[in-house]
Every structure is written in C-alpha cells, then in structure tokens.
Amino acid sequence: MDKRVIFAVAGSGKTSHIIDGLNEGSRTLIITYTENNFKSLKKRISAKFGYIPSGIKVYTYFTFIYSFCFKPILGHDVKIKGINWDIPPQFTLRLKRNDERFYVDKNKRLYHNRIAKMLEQFGVIDELISRVEKYFDSICIDEVQDFAGHDFNLLLQLASARVNQLLVGDYYQHTFDTSRDGTTNKTLHDCYEKYKQKFIKSGFTIDTDTLSRSYRCSANTCEFVTDNIGINILSHRKDATNVEFIKCKERANELFTCPETVKLFYQASYKYKGLTENWGATKGEDHYGHVCVVLNQKTLTYLNQGKLHELPSQTKNKLYVACTRAKGNLYLVPERHLLEFKQ
C-alpha cells in the first residue's frame, strides 16, 4: 500500500499526475478543495475516458465530508439542514466538545470547519474508514496544502485506511485558511519542515522530486521566483521568456489596455476595469499567456530591497501564485503607474 505526499511546484502537472494514475476500472476517491479544480478534474477524466467511470468519484472537500461522511453515518441521528459557512461565534469555543451546539448552529446547520471534529467526537472515524475501504482502492487528494484546522487532523486519521493514498499539493500555494478553528493546527503552515514531519509520523512518504519542475513557467520565470521570492521551482522548458520590471508609465498603460495580458492585483482588482484578477484567486488557473503582476507600495519596496522572501507568508504565497501563472512574459508593474484606471 503506497501512501505518498507529493509536494509539487506550480504548473508541474499535479492534476495530470492524478489523471495518469486512473484507468477505467479504478475505484478511486478524488478530493479537491476548490470548485475550479473540481470542475477541471471532472473535465479531464471525461476527456481521458469519454465518460466518468462509475468507480471514480470526484468530490470537493465539503461535499465529501458532508455527503459522503456526515450524512450517511450521522445524518440519521443528528438532523441537519445544511452547512453554515461563517466562522462559528466566539462563545462556542468555550463549549464542551461533546456539546452539540459546538457543531450545530441554532438553524440546525453544521459549522463547516467543525464537521471533521464532529466525526471524531462521535467516534465514527472507524466507520468512516470502513466506508472508504468498501468503495475505494485508492484515495487521491489534490491541493492538500489547503487542509487546515480539524480537517487536517481528519486527513491524518484517514491515513490508516487500507487503501493507496496519493496526496498532492504545493506548500507555498497555501493562501488562505477556510477551516481555522481556535488554536487547532494554528501553526501548521508556519514551518515547512514540521509540516512534512506530521505526514511522515502518520506513515506517509514525502516526495519532493516527482513534481518539482514546472511545465507552465519558463526557466527565466522560475529563476526569478526562486531568487527573489525564495521558493524553489525548476522548469521543464528550454525556451526563454522575459521577466521585465516596468519602469515607465507609457509601457504600463500599454500593458493595462492590452486585452490579452492579465493584470493581477494584490486585492480589490474589481476597482480596475479590464482583464484583471486578484493574486490569490488565480490559483489553479492555467490559461494565461503573458502576465502582468501589479505591485503595491509595500511589495514594491520589498522587491527593490531584494527582500520579497521576507514578506508575510500569506502575501508571499499569493505573489508566488500570481507570478507562476505566466506561460509567456512576466511583467512587474508598480500600481502607482495605473492609478488613472482606478474607479
């Protein structure tokens, strides 16, 4: 039984790697975090087989935990009307963990970030593991870096299921915590080494080699990211692209009005009309050619001082995501050149 965590870099073909491991008779559970990735997985499975084989089930994480785990096992005892996507109110943190109000709001909805904890509290993890083993020979989890809080604990508890497990993720693409809950796994992403150790202790092999090279980004882009942001990424590509810092306003204007070049902002991209997006929101996107990363005053200063790697980790990771969208040229544009377009 192979239990493996592959740490991948951006554009290295994580999804392809999962799809390549499937065949028509596979009994595979595929879990991913974002809706975008869920759609793209299904699309690519259909493209490979012409349809989705009945043994292959793709779930977003919350569909998995709600429809596959919670409903069939606990739904009979605890009547629930859906998921509450808000952060649970502060007072609930003071409740005992066996108090139903810790998990269920007054409208009978489950707090999204505590469903995993509830399964543990109600002692049904073994039942869940049997259920997984009953229907599947292997589990693939994509975007594993996004598991946090109680959900990360569940991931490690599932490790004891007697099925092959392939976990794929990019530690540095961890850009937001949807599942934080109090102090549970609060420091999970603070140290890459400690993070890896948690998997090793649960019986996983760590693989940082298989998906260490990007198909999407050129050697130049990868070099820029490695040298400046401090995140190691290599390239499969032999061709060269440009990484260009835009100094003059005319060039910036030209790029902003170019309908083919996407402009990526740290936040509030909606204030700029055109082909614009936020850094963090482009995770998983693979259709950009040239990319224009817009730097606000803070990141600009860090860049000029050669200290981008010292940015707070969330910001740094988002910048990494933004830069690694580029298949073509990567342009770095100070936001102040674009202020006239702001609405």
Partner: peptide
C-alpha cells in the same frame, strides 16, 4: 449496489 450514494444509516432501522 457498490454505490456510496445509496449507502448509509438514513432509514427506519438506523442500520447501514
């Protein structure tokens, strides 16, 4: 039926 969508304890018996 080999189909997780059909399997669970949501029935009068409360049995999987």
């Amino acid at each position: 039926q080999g189909n997780p969508s059909l399997n669970g304890k949501n029935n009068l018996d409360g049995v999987p």
